[in-house]
């Protein structure tokens, strides 16, 4: 049965293999060229902290200008691959059989529908995921080499960086694939399933993001009003505001009214810094706070992300099973 599924997926498997070989080759080549470019521009040491390094005039800016397009292309590849897997591998997997009636051939052999379905799913999905993960890590390896001269400068919670890091791409690919197979089994039309699958994937992908659900990992930081924190750790700040003396967050509409009021003196002239802070304290503001997901917890947010999309994928695969079982 596995052989049969492999043979039927041959075109897709060869395409995947081609993508892997070409993609890996190009990435390795680009990375090595980039390292040469860093050396010749004498900015290799800027990779650690681009803001603080001493470098020839304009060299950093020139590097970023030259390399931003290759970086973006690589990121786009990893962001786009899940959608492509859903559209070109997931959607036609059953739709093509149902469209051409070949499922009748399969359903009238000894192999059970469930085994047939599972073997097709595994043969189609596993190689696609392997290719995706390998390319994702190669791109990561390359972007790491560019360090803060590249897109990583924007931190792990930058939407694009987040989408191509950790286990998230795996979750998106799983979801896109399951969505494609489900729509294919439901519509029995390859083209319809491909189109609807792409649209649905893009919509859900942007509507549901692990960054939102990941806020369970947010940690609250606070400083007394007027105090400046020594060093804000790097992370994703979700909310900021004030706490009253009992440590409760002041509702934001009330806070903004009071805050506005403190900016001017009772006389109507702009308040001084001390007057402003004193006014805030009098109004009941005790502390500044901000909720932040530290960069160090990014992997946990990725886990939430993959869990959300994974659950969606499982539901869709259950739907696929249901659709195929009632198919005659």
């Amino acid at each position: 049965m596995i052989w049969a599924s492999l043979r039927l997926q041959r075109l897709q498997l060869l395409t995947l293999l081609g993508t892997l070989v070409v993609g890996a080759g190009v990435i390795v080549l680009l990375r090595s060229n980039m390292i040469d470019a860093l050396d010749s521009a004498q900015i290799a040491h800027c990779v650690r902290a681009a803001d603080q390094c001493v470098a020839p005039d304009g060299a950093v800016k020139a590097f970023r200008t030259t390399w931003s397009t290759p970086f973006e292309t690589a990121q786009l590849l990893i962001i786009g691959l899940p959608a492509l897997i859903g559209v070109f591998i997931g959607a036609p997997l059953f739709a093509l059989e149902l469209e051409q009636g070949t499922h009748v051939l399969a359903f009238t052999q000894s192999v059970s529908r469930t085994r047939w379905m599972l073997s097709k799913l595994v043969v189609a999905l596993v190689p696609a995921l392997v290719v995706l993960v390998v390319l994702q890590h190669l791109v990561g390896w390359w972007l790491d080499a560019a360090g803060s001269l590249g897109p990583l400068y924007n931190g792990p919670f930058n939407r694009v960086n987040f989408a191509i890091q950790g286990v998230s791409p795996l979750g998106y690919a799983l979801f896109a694939f399951a969505l494609g197979t489900f729509l294919g089994a439901l519509t029995r039309r390859t083209l319809a399933a491909m189109t609807a699958g792409l649209v649905a994937f893009v919509v859900v992908r942007f509507a549901v993001s692990g960054l939102v659900t990941g806020s369970v990992f947010a940690e609250r930081r606070a400083t007394a009003v007027g105090e400046v924190p020594e060093q804000r750790e790097s992370g994703l700040v979700l909310t900021t505001g004030w706490l009253d003396a009992s440590g409760q967050a002041v509702p934001s509409d009330r806070a903004s009214v009071l805050n506005q009021a403190c900016k001017t003196t009772p006389g109507g002239s702009p308040n001084t810094e001390e007057g402003y802070l004193a006014c805030l304290r009098e109004s009941g503001f005790a502390q500044n706070y901000w909720d932040v997901i530290p960069d160090s917890r990014a992997w946990q947010v990725h886990l939430v992300d993959v869990a959300v999309f994974g659950v969606l994928a499982v539901v869709l695969l259950a739907g696929t099973t249901w659709a195929l079982r009632r198919q005659s």
Partner: peptide, 11 residues
């Protein structure tokens, strides 16, 4: 190949 698929799908 088709015949081989048949063999693969039958006990």
């Amino acid at each position: 190949e088709l015949v081989r698929v048949g063999a693969a799908m039958n006990d």
